[in-house]
Amino acid sequence: MPRKLVAVLAALLVLAVACGEASDDSAGESGAQGGCELSDPPTLEGGTLTVATDRPAYPPWFEGSPKDYSGFEGDLAAAIAERMDLDIKWVVEPFNKSYAPGAKNYDFDINQISITPERAQAVDFSDGYFNNNQGFLAAEGSDIGGATSLGDLEGAQLGAQVGTTSLAFINERIQPESDPKVFDTTNDVKSALESGQIDALVTDVVTTVYLRDFEIKGTEVIGQYPTEEPFGMVFEKESPLVDCVNQVLEELKGDGTLDGLQEKWLQDYLGVPELSD
């Protein structure tokens, strides 16, 4: 029996080494994509731009039903499709699956995903289309309500959604006395704030204002911290489409369309006092 066990372990090791070696050469290269013909964009389905986002999708990023999303990101994707002369089709892609290897059933994923160098090793990002700040939402009249700096938040029990840059921000910049609580979805962070399990919820500032106005009664946005992380659309590594989308994005920035969308959807959400270090 022990000999058999050793044999199994040895075989497993062979397996691990085989996979490990095979992977070495593919690591670390950044996606260098050549020119992309805007007149004939290399999409998954001819004539259609298939765009993915998570579900539930939150306003004001997304409004309406998955059949025809509007909202800031919904309209942006629609504008990109229009400039490419394509129909748009929406599919659902959970955030945690967006970086899985293997064939995708969409052209790109747009889901408030921050561009970071680590992530860019695994996927390709479009250029940024929005600069995100971290926002802090707490119960009205709580002890941390008067916070003016990140230091004032050190003693609070903070909570964030898993996979967000908010969590990394808490750990790196605030370094609170007690470990932050981490939840699967924004809804769960919301429940924890409502039931008093956490003192403050940390997410992008737009979402905090949305939650205050429409979802959780009796809360206030304490402030925002200007991290200015760019949101980018996520493509499969080496996707030939990135260049086309970037060209269109450049156009939309140049002719004021992107600013218009930001004004239309996000204006009400950005007037929040800034916290100092």
Partner: peptide, 26 residues
Amino acid sequence: TILFFIAVAVVVALAPGSDIVGERFL
């Protein structure tokens, strides 16, 4: 047992996506 795991290792290593799967998981 050894043959079985070698077979599995070979199949996994030769799969078209083995590079990317190895990189993402191992």
